[in-house]
Each structure stands twice: as C-alpha cells, then as structure tokens.
Simulated scan of single mutants.
Amino acid sequence: MNPPVSSTHLVLVPSYNTGAELLLSTVRGALAHWRPVWVVVDGSNDGSAEAVARLALEEPGLRVIMRAKNGGKGAAVLEGAELAAAKGFSHVLVMDADGQHPAGRIQDFMTASLREPSALVLGRPVFGPEAPPVRLKGRRLSVGLVHCECLGGGIDDPLFGFRVYPVAPLVRVMRRTRFARRYDFDPEMAVRLFWAGVPTVNIPAACRYLSRADGGVSHFHYVRDNIRMAWLHTRLIAALLLWQWPAARRAQRKRK
C-alpha cells in the first residue's frame, strides 16, 4: 500500500554524520510510511550527504537540504521549518536520523496532529531492556525539572525528539531565543511552546537504544552537553520565576 502524501504535514530528519547506511535506512523507513520526507544535512562530512542526495534523484517524495556548516539539531530544524512554511506546509514531524525513532508510528502521530492541529504532539518513549539504567535516571531528572518549569504536567518527556510541531509557533518561538540550537533544542522548545500557549498531546512510542556496538551513532559529549543542559534549566527556571509564571499558570488552567 502506498504511503499517504500530504500537502500540510511533512517528515523532517536533521542529520549530522549519521553514516550513509544508517541515514538511508532511516529515510527509507520514513518514506515507507509518509511523503514528503525532507532531510536537513547539517554540515556532514562522512559521505552520508552524497548517499541521501543520490536517493533523492529517484525518490520524488524526498528532498535534501544541505547546510554548509554544522549548527546543531535546533538550527537544522529551524532552517527546515522555515523552508517548509515557505512551501505552504503547516506541520513538521521531526525524527532523528539514527534509527532510534519508530517510523511505523509516523501515521499515528500525523493523525493526532490532523485531529488537533494547534497542538504539539509529543512522543513518550517506551524503552526496551537494553536502555542503560543511568540514562533512564537522568531522564527522570529532566522530566521533574520540566514539570517545575511548567508548574505541572503537560510534557511527559522533554528529551524524546519524535514530535509533530505546528510550524508557525515553532519558528516564532525559536526566533525569539538564540539558544535551543543544539542538544538543548528538544527540552527548550517543549517548555517555551508550552509557555506560549501551544496545547500538548502525549503519545507513547517505542524507542530503540542503539549502542555503538549495535551501530548506534551519538555526538553527545558528556561534560560539554551536560553543562549545556544544566545551563538550559537554570535559564528556564530563572525565566519562569521572573516573568513566565503567569504564562505557565494560564497553560495549566487550559489543560484542566
């Protein structure tokens, strides 16, 4: 059966040095469930850009956007979202290029977005037994901090990047901050869109944890990026206390 072809919703895959084989597998999986699929190659130098560009020559539902320099996931998503808006698309489903996100759930998430187009549709990850316990504990800390920043629930998991964003508020909120361009993108956008009054829908989705031995790719730098995440939550809590608490309260009242 042919996948749906949409004029409003597209799949957006930011990629940096994912490796040609892994990126092609992820893109082919997405194309099997939805069209169009756009890949933003964020300054890769591992040959994956050339491989996916060749695939685009034979796949009309695939577009490849090349960035000359690596700017981070958030910067790649912003460029893709701005181009999507210019082409008349209203929503982007962002999924990682490393094979951890479930391509088979794309249609479910798109359907939820079509049913409630004003909402940010967030994935709530369901991990298998292979996920390291230390990662799960760190995730619980992030969830707790975001619940503080939102004065309650609404964002079940701030780190899982499998999401459908309404393009207009995403671009508007990102243009208001110089942050949220790298690993801070997923949690910061979830919180700032919540403060901006964007309703949320949370849907469980399986998440594969791929170790390096299993072919997984990660550019997470333990010290640098944990410092970045600590700075993120320091900024968000300060903003909440100084001026965003009325917005957070309004958003929580809308949920009830």
Rank of each mutant, 00 (worst) to 15 (best):
M1D: 03
M1R: 05
N2E: 12
S6Q: 05
T8S: 05
L10V: 13
L10D: 02
S15E: 04
Y16R: 12
N17Q: 12
N17H: 05
T18P: 03
L22P: 04
L22N: 06
L23H: 04
L24A: 08
V27W: 00
G29W: 00
G29L: 00
A30L: 06
V39R: 01
V39C: 00
D42P: 00
D42T: 05
G43T: 07
G47S: 08
E50L: 14
A53M: 07
R54H: 02
R54C: 06
E58P: 10
G61N: 00
R63Y: 00
M66N: 04
A68C: 10
K73P: 13
A76I: 01
A76M: 02
E79D: 10
G80I: 02
A81T: 11
A84F: 02
A85C: 08
A85T: 08
K87W: 04
G88Y: 03
G88P: 07
L93N: 00
M95S: 06
A97S: 14
G99L: 07
P102K: 13
G104F: 01
I106Y: 10
D108H: 15
F109H: 03
M110Y: 01
T111S: 10
E116R: 12
S118V: 12
S118Q: 13
V121D: 01
V121P: 04
G123I: 15
P125L: 04
F127D: 03
P129H: 08
P129I: 12
E130L: 06
A131D: 07
P133R: 14
V134P: 04
R135A: 11
R135Y: 11
R135P: 10
K137V: 06
R140G: 07
V146K: 01
C148Q: 04
E149I: 15
C150E: 08
L151F: 13
G153Q: 13
G154E: 06
I155E: 01
L159Q: 14
G161Y: 06
Y165A: 06
P166C: 03
V167R: 00
P169W: 00
P169H: 03
V171F: 01
R172N: 07
T177V: 08
R178K: 13
R178Q: 12
R182Y: 08
D184I: 14
E188S: 15
M189K: 10
R192N: 08
L193F: 04
F194K: 10
A196I: 01
V198Y: 00
P199V: 10
P199R: 07
P204S: 13
A206Q: 11
R212I: 14
A213K: 13
A213N: 11
A213G: 13
D214M: 12
G216Y: 11
V217Q: 02
S218Q: 09
S218E: 04
H219Y: 03
F220L: 14
F220A: 15
F220W: 15
Y222T: 13
I227V: 12
R228A: 11
M229T: 15
L232F: 08
A239Q: 02
L241E: 09
L242N: 09
W245A: 15
W245K: 14
W245D: 11
R249H: 08
Q252R: 14
